[in-house]
Nucleic acid binder design. Structure first.
Length: 732
DNA sequence: GAGCACTGC
């Protein structure tokens, strides 16, 4: 059904493919000359990424044949059998809540049904949002194959730094929820779309929650014709249904294998110990299949791996040889990749992972799951203005998701390191992001969109009045909102930058004080996660020493300046192998630095547009200098003051004053705060410039005590200069 | 003397 029309569409597109290629790669490399980003809704195909169309040599006929071959597999998916029912249901209702279990094929098939079946009278495309980039790219790639077209034509995707979609030609677009929010800001009515599908809505990310609120309001006002489908894997259906005035719920069962669940007869005392015991026992009793263990954090994982490695030599010859792998986000990508390598011979993988393996990473070959039932979660305290990192029990939904990891390829077993009674006590769902995070950025988005009354907006789940008020206050203090609560010119700029409002403000000040080229590098580094990695305990001291020796300014002025020094050094290295070796030596992520370059290009483009003037960007040649020169030429001490003062404009509240006993107390509340051991300034004796009179930090996290992360040394005079200015503004 | 997980034209 509808296959013929697809073929026709493809033939029509055959011509434009060649044309596309000829103007596909004009830009890149020379950052000084071009702007990658524009503020226009310019969705044309890929913007010149060199990996563009690997399928170019394949004929349209061949694409069709390949699609036909995939059809059999599609037809066996559970959603396919219910196609008629699903489609007629969606046609009849403005909002459909679709509960599809994993393996039902909902994310790939339903959008394709709608592509064929929604009346062509309805102009516009179908958008499918995903919380993660890789998912959006993978789904789009798969669906393009099934549909028999090239990626970026009828089927495409749009994620940060990578857009393979066409404004008019693309009929089905997979995008990250962040990208759809961006599109909403530019086109408040989403007039290019006839249907929006929100996938993985049960994950309840802040951005998905926001989109659902926007969609509800749109449907009530300017887009009564807009179809909305909310897809969710587990039971949060009632919440979504109620939110969309009791929209009907559709269930589609999945196709997964049976997973047997086992509980402990009584609670365990030490989860690391229990995980190790359980996996070793499992290794002796079961012959095939790998083991995936969920532990709350890096500390527990490293411990468990160390214990397993000690035990391995003593294992009986008759049982498979164990290889233990840690898996968490802060691990260098190379080590992360090891969990995917198949083992040869009489061997078994034991992967010890954080929550990363619950949704983001799927490990093939897993037949057994050991779940300690805990995870770490960051909770923002609005009253205190700091984040706390807590170890908490997971939800029933999470526990089910984790167990499901054992039944992806065949039937499996899941061992829960808690009692069945404890299981029954678990909350149904985890606390959603919107209720536990800082929401300055979402509030600014809403304001910029034109929402006046934030408290009474159509929140899927209300973040709480307190959170909204502290967010509004914060935005006012940053100069993003005026006394009437309206977005200022500065606020408009801040909303357009893909950064937290605090960092946007830093960038704006940098522009105003002519230090943008330095500051933009540091801000880019800060917005890339896991750039500076944590060395393993045995290499920790060496790595710290190397960093200290290379970053001479950073060791005096702190982590922000260190980031700049590291980035300059990275850029100055010629060959890839040199870069690789350098990254390894300093325990920093090469992939991270590649992202820094992308972020910097994007931010540079935005700043250029915002100020309508060229921003001076150093080309490779400008930053190419030996390490000594970086210290002498690139950042002179007066510049450092100027650079750090910019950060003070975004983070005045994140400052602490040095006490005579070398401890620090925060300026807003006088709480004690310690410099995090990962900081350059940790154990800093002050050297020739004396102990820090005050510090500025990007993050304040409470774990065992209050820690300042990404710390810089500042002078009391700067603090007085800037704090009084900010104070004046906020008390006016 | 320590680091849950995502994401943004």
């Amino acid at each position: 059904m509808g296959k013929k029309s697809k073929a026709v569409q493809d033939r029509q597109n055959g011509k434009s493919i060649g044309k596309k290629k000829s103007n596909a790669n004009p830009l890149k490399r020379h950052a000084g000359k071009k702007t990658v980003v524009t503020f226009d809704d310019h969705q044309d195909g890929d913007t010149g990424d060199s990996d563009s169309e690997a399928l170019d040599h394949v004929s349209n006929k061949e694409l069709k044949t390949r699609a036909l071959r995939l059809l059999k597999g599609r037809e066996s998916l559970p959603v396919f059998q219910n196609k008629e029912k699903i489609v007629s249901h969606i046609k009849a209702n403005p909002v459909t809540i679709l509960i599809g279990e994993t393996g039902s094929g909902k994310s790939t098939q339903i959008p394709q049904f709608l592509m064929d079946e929604i009346s062509p009278m309805h102009k516009g495309a179908i958008a499918v949002t995903q919380p993660r980039r890789v998912a959006a790219i993978n789904l789009a790639t798969r669906v393009a194959q099934e549909h028999g077209c090239r990626i970026g034509h009828e089927v495409g995707y749009s994620v940060r730094f990578d857009n393979k979609s066409h404004k008019t030609r693309t009929k089905l677009k997979y995008l990250t929820d962040g990208m759809l929010i961006r599109e909403l800001m530019l086109d408040k009515n989403l007039s290019n779309y006839k249907c929006i599908i929100i996938d993985e809505a049960h994950e309840r990310t802040i951005l998905t929650d926001l989109i659902l609120g926007f969609l509800k309001e749109l449907q009530l006002t300017k887009r009564k014709d807009l179809k909305v489908i909310v897809m969710s894997a587990t039971l949060q259906a009632d919440l979504f249904s109620k939110f969309f005035s009791n929209a009907p719920i559709l269930f589609v069962e999945g196709r997964k294998f049976k997973v047997d669940r086992y509980y402990l007869p009584r609670p365990c005392e030490d989860i690391v110990d229990s995980v190790v015991r359980c996996s070793v026992q499992l290794n002796s009793s079961e012959t095939t299949g790998d083991i995936l263990c969920f532990l709350p954090g890096q500390e527990e994982i490293d411990k468990a791996v160390a214990i397993l490695n000690k035990i391995i030599p003593y294992l009986d010859e008759s049982v498979p040889r164990i290889t233990a792998y840690p898996l968490y986000a802060a691990l260098p990508p190379k080590d992360q990749a090891k969990v995917f390598e198949p083992l040869k011979g009489f061997k078994r993988k034991i992967v010890l992972a954080t929550n990363i393996a619950e949704t983001s990473v799927t490990i093939p070959g897993v037949k057994y799951v050991i779940d300690c039932g805990l995870r770490k979660v960051k909770v923002w305290r609005h009253q205190l203005g700091l984040a706390t990192l807590l170890t908490v029990p997971v939800s029933k939904a999470s526990v089910a998701q984790r167990a499901g990891r054992a039944g992806r390829e065949s039937s499996g077993k899941c061992f829960r390191l808690f009692t069945e009674a404890d299981y029954k006590q678990l909350p149904k769902q985890s606390e959603s992001e919107i209720t536990r995070c800082e929401i300055t950025s979402p509030i600014l988005m809403l304001k910029q969109y034109g929402v006046q009354d934030i408290v009474n907006w159509s929140w899927l789940e209300h973040p709480g009045k307190e959170a909204i008020i502290s967010g509004l206050k914060e935005l006012y203090e940053l100069g993003a909102l005026n006394e009437q609560g309206r977005v200022t010119d500065r606020g408009r700029k801040m909303a357009l930058l893909p950064l937290a409002p605090h960092l946007s403000n830093v960038l704006i000040h940098a522009q105003e004080t002519q230090v943008l080229p330095y500051v933009i590098d540091i801000v880019s580094c800060l917005s890339v996660e896991n750039l500076v990695l944590n060395p393993l305990p045995e290499e920790r001291d060496e790595v710290n020493e190397r960093r200290r020796a290379l970053c001479t300014l950073g060791s005096k002025h702190g982590d922000l300046i260190m980031l700049k020094e590291l980035f300059d050094m990275y850029q100055s290295l010629q060959s890839n192998s040199e870069k690789q070796e350098w990254c390894k030596q300093l325990c920093v992520s090469q992939r991270g630095f590649k992202n820094v370059i992308k972020v910097r290009e994007q931010l540079t483009g935005y700043m250029k547009r915002l100020y309508n003037e060229p921003v001076e960007i150093k080309t490779k040649q400008d930053t190419l200098q030996p390490e000594e020169d970086i210290a002498t030429n690139l950042l002179q001490p007066p510049d450092i003051a100027g650079v750090l003062k910019c950060f003070l404009y975004g983070f005045v509240k994140n400052t602490a004053i040095g006490m005579p006993d070398k401890s620090f107390r925060t300026t807003p509340t006088g709480e004690p705060i310690s410099i995090h051991p990962s900081s350059m300034l940790f154990m800093n004796s002050g050297d020739e410039i004396g102990p820090c009179p005050a510090i500025l930090y990007i993050e304040h996290v409470f774990t065992t005590k209050g820690y300042a992360r990404s710390v810089s040394r500042i002078e009391l005079a700067w603090l007085q200069e800037i704090a009084s200015g900010v104070l004046k503004q906020s008390t006016r």
